[in-house]
């Protein structure tokens, strides 16, 4: 049942993500459906080839260390403030809302645990993923897209530099590393604001709050949930780089790449989350 649902979501995601191509082919009714299905398959085929090239580039010498660090710095500094603010906002909301429901069931002493647990387990990772896919996905899509349409990527290839390696694989690896770190920031900001919003209603020291809260969560809760965001990073990096590097049709094409990078990567991210949550439940009971 769950699997069927995920598959349905995947299909819906891709179908909604590639209408541009289908639109261009035109047609109505059955024909439109046909061309839509075709473009979905085409997208996956092209994306597969892209990933293969990137993989090959990633594991061939020399490693583009400097460019990787530059991208890591870029992605980190671009999203850090946003991720922190989002984490903080969720902390506040969780603090207020959880108190309301826990009071109703007479379990207010559970408040710190519930806040920390929900943040680390799901809210922190997924919100970080979605925010980064918006911020960084659009950035990568637009940057690589404009490099593509102005032939800068071709110029790179002419200079004997593999663009799949130099441009795509460094960005993908940077996303992969940055996401767990950013998730930690979101978690921390959330816990802090969760405490603040609780202590304003009913004073409690930060030490006690953390103590009570962390009692309720184990390392096995925290680690897989945080590390799964690396998969989110992989998705964001790969999808956005692909959308950017396959961009065509001038400035309009660049805009399309940026938008579709965000749309496709966030949809894939949510679908992947369904699978990952299921997988983690299987192994870390």
């Amino acid at each position: 049942m769950r699997l069927a649902l995920s598959l349905f979501i995947t299909l819906a995601a891709t179908v909604s993500a590639v209408p541009v191509e289908a639109e261009r082919r035109g047609g109505a009714g059955l024909l439109a459906v046909q061309s839509l299905v075709l473009s979905v398959f085409e997208w996956f085929g092209q994306f597969g080839i892209f990933c293969q090239r990137v993989l090959k580039g990633t594991f061939s010498a020399p490693f583009e260390g400097r460019e990787f660090l530059r991208q890591l710095d870029n992605i980190g500094s671009q999203s850090l403030p946003l991720v922190a603010v989002a984490g903080a906002a969720i902390g506040v909301v969780l603090g207020l809302q959880t108190r309301e429901s826990l009071t109703r069931f007479g379990a207010t002493s559970m408040l710190p645990s519930v806040i920390i647990y929900s943040l680390m387990k799901e809210m922190g990772p997924i919100v970080t993923g979605l925010i980064v896919s918006g911020r960084v996905g659009a950035g990568i899509g637009a940057e690589l897209g404009s490099m593509k349409v102005t032939e800068q990527i071709d110029a790179m290839a002419v200079s004997g530099v593999n663009p799949y390696k130099y441009l795509a694989s460094t960005r993908i690896l940077a996303c992969l590393v940055a996401l767990p770190l950013l998730t930690l920031v979101a978690d921390a900001a959330g816990v802090l604001m969760g405490w603040l919003s609780s202590t304003l209603v009913k004073p409690i020291s930060l030490g006690l709050f953390l103590n009570m809260g962390l009692n309720g969560v184990s390392f096995g809760d925290f680690l897989p949930a945080t590390l799964k965001t690396s998969i989110f990073g992989l998705i964001i990096g790969a999808v956005s780089s692909y959308q950017g590097m396959s961009s065509r049709g001038g400035t309009e094409g660049v805009g399309r790449s940026a938008t579709s990078a965000v749309v496709i990567s966030s949809l894939f991210l949510i679908v992947a989350d369904v699978f990952l949550v299921r997988l983690i439940l299987l192994f870390f009971k």
Binding site: S146, M147, T150, E151, Q152, D154, A155, M156, A157, V158, S159, G160, V161, N162
Partner: peptide, 28 residues
């Protein structure tokens, strides 16, 4: 790529890397 080392190419729209200065472009 090995063959391209002895080739040069000037693009119609120049295709300079727009995040790099002219010096860095030529140095690339």
């Amino acid at each position: 790529n090995r063959i391209r080392q002895k080739l040069g190419f000037l693009f119609q729209q120049a295709a300079l890397y727009d995040s790099l200065t002219l010096g860095e472009n030529v140095e690339f």
